[in-house]
Amino acid sequence: MKVFIGGYTKKTSKGIYQADLTIKDGQASLGNFTNCVELNGPTYFKKCGNYLFSIAKNKDEGGISFFQLNPVKLINSVFQPGASPAYLGINEDKHLVYTANYHTAYLSVYHYDNDGVSLVDQVKHDSFNLGPRPEQKDGAHPHFFDETPSGKLVSCDLGNDSVDFYDLKDGHLVHLARYLNEAGFGSRHIVFNKENNYFYVAGELSSKINVVKYNEKTWEFENIATYRTIPDDYTDHNGVAAIRMSNDGKFLYLSNRGHNSITVFKIKADHTLELVQRISTFGEFPRDFNWDSSEKWVIATNQNTDNATLYERNSEMGTLAVVQKDVAVPEGTCVVFSKE
């Protein structure tokens, strides 16, 4: 099994690295890292068959690059003035790519084919509801842009403490509805249940997760509950980063940058949460973590300490157990598994 890890290229990293996740006698090990794609700033990327789409940086411009793999070949890049996007999503059936740009406040939709990637439409978030925290005072900061289970589009805006829903009609983004988190929440990433009537928002600045019931036909929202991802007595700086839901809809996982941990919640029958575990990432600043298709093997990357940690996941209990730590990988911020 192959694993791809990319991130910042401010120190020693040259781009995206490929590693082997080897399973022998039921035990896993991660190793054999090689730089497979040389790229400036691939902080978030997605793999689609023999293609790879990545955030990229080119001097004073930011955008996305589209690669063929095996052998590696750059198909094309699309750049715009300013910082790179923070998030990239993909719909393989529609051949669409979505990006959210934290710094420029743009949400963008791209189309791709064998010839490359091209811009379809983009909108800019205004500073309509800026929160009270220092990170929010300079404007809107969309950090996520991707699809809901029904194919609508949704963004999370850290600056505005908002979750915004869109539709792509005739090649244009149309705003549909907005849900506001509590002031200072710092809305960052979001996941949905399969029934598409509940969503769970990760609050970067508040170190919280908000459970919301909603109706996509009427755009009515109900704030169900909010939970802290870190201990009540933890007072040092922390920022929630990635959030993932298991495919069976029973567990939620969030990474904590500062507390340097992954928090595990059980999703109860009424969609509220119960704390299951907090486990160290054995490094500093775990921006991302991910799992293989079986959701048994989990890898977390620690951006500031240039290392990764491998866990084994118990699907019944939801808990993580450390298998391997201190795996050297530079400036990792994104993890992608691949069977190829």
Rank of each mutant, 00 (worst) to 15 (best):
K2W: 14
F4N: 02
K11S: 14
S13C: 06
A19K: 00
G26L: 04
Q27C: 06
L30K: 02
N40I: 11
G49R: 10
E61K: 12
E61F: 03
G63I: 03
G63N: 01
F66M: 00
F67T: 02
F67I: 10
P71S: 06
V72N: 07
K73L: 03
S77M: 02
Q80P: 07
N91V: 07
E92R: 13
D93A: 08
V97R: 00
V97A: 13
N101S: 11
S108H: 08
V109T: 04
V109R: 01
N114L: 02
D115M: 00
K124I: 09
H125I: 04
D126C: 06
F128D: 05
F128W: 11
R133Y: 06
E135F: 01
A140T: 07
A140G: 07
A140V: 04
H141W: 08
P149H: 14
L153Q: 02
D161K: 11
D161A: 05
L168Y: 14
K194W: 12
A202L: 08
A202H: 01
S206T: 14
S207V: 04
N215C: 12
E216A: 14
E220A: 10
N223S: 15
I224W: 15
R228S: 14
T229V: 06
P231T: 09
P231S: 09
T235V: 12
D236F: 13
D236T: 06
H237I: 09
A241I: 05
G249N: 04
F251T: 08
V264Q: 05
F265E: 04
K268G: 09
K268I: 12
H271M: 09
I279E: 00
S280Q: 04
T281V: 14
F282I: 02
P286V: 06
T305C: 07
A308R: 08
E312Q: 13
G318W: 12
G318K: 07
D326G: 12
E340I: 15
E340P: 15
